[in-house]
């Protein structure tokens, strides 16, 4: 049995939505997630026609084909420093997800999954507070429909002081409207804090060790969410009437450098660039050092409804520190 799922990526601009998506397949391939290694998920980009075809099988005919689709382009843009997603449309990327290892029967029996992940500019769903952003009405309507039709929403937020951010008012309004929309199909909502590696910039080779501790992530989430106005509004989605599972997690598309374990931002390169092998071009230059961190987490939870060591519920956030210890 194949289950089709739509997942909407939303969040303020420059929050890391497209980077999160661009690093997803590599994160799964490198098992750089907080799930058990025995879960053995596999993720493959598929075309629109493959997504809608009945009884989709793995691409046998395309065994030797080099991937040239929209997702490959997104990965290439990410490797070259990233491109701001425009507001002229919303963009769909499609994948086939399988779980090849051990997982609870309730999860395994539903698969494989066909995922449609919708990316859009941050200005559309979460514009800066007080700014009049001229967005085409049909694009706004398209994204609103996609959000209502989605089984899961991933809310991507940069790891900044949320109370000082310039978009929290609009984010609160969006969550309110979503909670009140009776026609929504939403089952899961994941709040993911991106750019997690930046917290560990001064930790050198110990950075990865600390980042890999779920207790550290839980502490960071508690601290970040302490003064957030929209946290209780989001909780309304999860009430018995809301019927939505809400989870919180962290991630880093740049991740931590393989072998050296420090945050993967090269201070010797202009702009924000990952460490790379000199003399090589494109994605190949980064592969030797790049290991994304937990960018698969929100997507796998959104698709499977299965918790990892780094997905936290309200109950876990609310628990007293000594209890969780």
């Amino acid at each position: 049995m194949t289950e089709r799922l739509s997942i909407c990526l939303i969040g303020p601009k420059k929050g890391g939505k497209s980077s999160l998506l661009a690093s997803l397949v590599d994160c799964v391939a490198q098992s750089a997630f907080g799930y058990s290694p025995r879960l053995r998920p596999a993720l493959q980009p598929v075309t629109e026609s493959e997504f809608y075809a009945e009884g989709v099988e793995p691409k046998k005919a395309d065994l030797l084909m080099v991937e040239q689709g929209d997702y490959e382009r997104l990965r290439r843009d990410f490797a070259e420093g990233g491109v701001a997603t425009d507001t002229l449309d919303t963009y769909e990327y499609r994948f086939r997800l399988t779980v090849n290892g051990e997982a609870p029967p309730a999860v395994v029996l539903r698969g494989p999954w066909l995922l449609e992940i919708i990316d859009s500019a941050g200005e559309i769903a979460v514009p800066p507070d007080g700014a009049e952003v001229a967005i085409l009405n049909d694009v706004k309507a398209k994204l609103a429909k996609q959000m209502l039709d989605s089984e899961a929403i991933i809310l991507v937020l940069p790891l900044v002081r949320l109370e000082d951010s310039g978009w929290s008012g609009n984010l609160s309004r969006l969550i309110d409207r979503l909670a009140l929309a009776p026609e929504k199909k939403l089952k899961r909502l994941v709040v993911v804090f991106s750019q997690y590696e930046r917290l560990f910039a001064r930790f050198g080779p110990s950075a990865f060790t600390y980042a890999c501790d779920p207790a550290v992530a839980l502490h960071v989430l508690r601290k970040s969410l302490r003064a957030v106005q929209w946290l209780d509004r989001l909780r309304a989605l999860e009430t018995p009437n809301g019927g939505v599972s809400v989870r919180f997690t962290v991630c880093s598309a740049y991740g931590f450098v393989k072998r050296f374990q420090n945050p993967n931002i090269d201070p010797h390169q202009p702009g924000e660039r990952r460490f790379r092998r000199a003399g090589l071009e494109g994605a190949r230059a980064y592969n030797e050092y790049w290991r994304p961190f937990l960018t698969a987490e929100p997507f796998l939870y959104a698709a499977l409804g299965h918790d990892s060591a780094f997905t936290f519920s309200y109950a876990q956030l609310d628990a007293r520190m000594e209890e969780s210890a």
């Binding site: 507001t87 002229l88 200005e123 700014a131 085409l136």
Partner: peptide, 26 residues
């Protein structure tokens, strides 16, 4: 600037907001 986002930033007065879609680059 950090606060600046995508949008139509200039439109001469004989064009309408409804022209934004018709004149979008893609």
């Amino acid at each position: 600037p950090a606060a600046a986002g995508y949008g139509v930033t200039l439109r001469s007065h004989n064009l309408q907001a409804s022209d934004d879609r018709l004149l979008s680059p893609p």
